[in-house]
């Protein structure tokens, strides 16, 4: 279900971290939220899953304003893979995924048949069923990240919010998580640090800088030389992956000297085909 953010202002101190942001997350696609450290990506996501109350602005999921929903209602619509999911308690993978049913269960928290089915399906779709009985402390980083994704899926959300889902993962698992997410068919809003991955998997990219939207559009538009320089201070070349045909982004520091035999025109983007 599509998400529209309008005039969103939020932050923890007097100076807002997110300042008057308008952004669109189209239905069914993956929208990547990119930007340098401290640009307001996490803050924006937290207002979407209601861990932070915005000072101004609206978040419309479909036609509903998230502000008008109570917390449980909102948590049934928005599933989250956040950055900090630790705590000193060693849940099993299945227990951790079952927590995704908290917004759906009654006052005593018992799991009904529908809840158990949602948990089993989420474990299955993320490939976690094989280690459902294992405690989180005995899973690898990639497995744990899939468990956290499974929890968000167990919420049966209409919008999936992912805050740096590829953090701490090796390259193979970074691709695995994004392949999985891109193949879900759910509307996804994901903060991504790795621009190349955003280029390869996002249908739409929103770039934040200092709490404001600096660029938004297709990967080809946002990762064009001018926005790349303005937002990230980087030169870049957008290429088409010779095997998959997906856009890939090569980045280099601004003003990097060209090697003899290089094209000498950093930042000239190849026109990448759209997926």
């Amino acid at each position: 279900m599509r998400l529209r953010i309008r005039g969103l202002t939020a932050g923890w101190t007097r100076v807002p971290t997110v300042d008057g942001v308008d952004a669109d997350v189209p239905e069914g696609g993956l929208t990547a939220l990119v930007g340098p450290n401290g640009s307001g990506k996490s803050t924006l996501l937290k207002t979407v899953y209601r861990a932070l109350r915005p000072r101004a602005g609206r978040r419309l999921l479909g036609e509903e304003d998230l502000l008008g929903l109570d917390r449980r209602e909102a948590a049934r619509r928005v599933g989250v893979l956040g950055q900090d999911q630790g705590g000193g308690f060693d849940f099993t993978a299945e227990e951790a995924v079952a927590l995704g049913r908290v917004p759906h269960t009654g006052p005593f928290g018992g799991l009904g048949a529908a809840d158990r089915e949602a948990v089993a399906e989420a474990l299955e779709r993320t490939g976690c069923a094989a280690f459902a009985d294992r405690p989180l402390s005995r899973l690898s980083g990639g497995e744990r990240q899939r468990v956290l994704l499974a929890r968000a899926l167990a919420q049966r959300p209409r919008l999936l919010v992912l805050d740096e889902p590829t953090n701490h993962l090796d390259p193979r698992h970074q691709f695995a998580v994004l392949e999985l997410v891109a193949g879900l068919g759910t509307t996804v809003l994901a903060a991504l640090h790795t621009l190349d991955l955003a280029a390869a998997y996002a249908d739409r990219v929103v770039a934040l800088r200092a709490g404001r939207v600096a660029a938004a559009g297709t990967p080809a538009e946002v990762f064009a030389p001018e926005p790349l320089r303005a937002v990230f201070g980087l030169e870049g070349t957008l290429l088409a992956d010779p095997v998959t045909g997906r856009p890939r982004l090569l980045t280099r520091p601004a003003g990097a000297p060209a090697a003899p035999g290089g094209s000498g025109t950093p930042g000239r983007a190849a026109h990448a085909p759209r997926r």
Binding site: Y49, R71, A75, D84, V102, P107, A152
Partner: peptide, 23 residues
């Protein structure tokens, strides 16, 4: 005991709990 699920959610921290609709 009736609030056991809330305790589980709190083990995830304030933001993890918020994501599950627990204030």
């Amino acid at each position: 005991t009736a609030r056991a699920r809330t305790l589980d959610a709190l083990a995830l921290g304030a933001e993890g709990a918020a994501a599950l609709g627990v204030r």
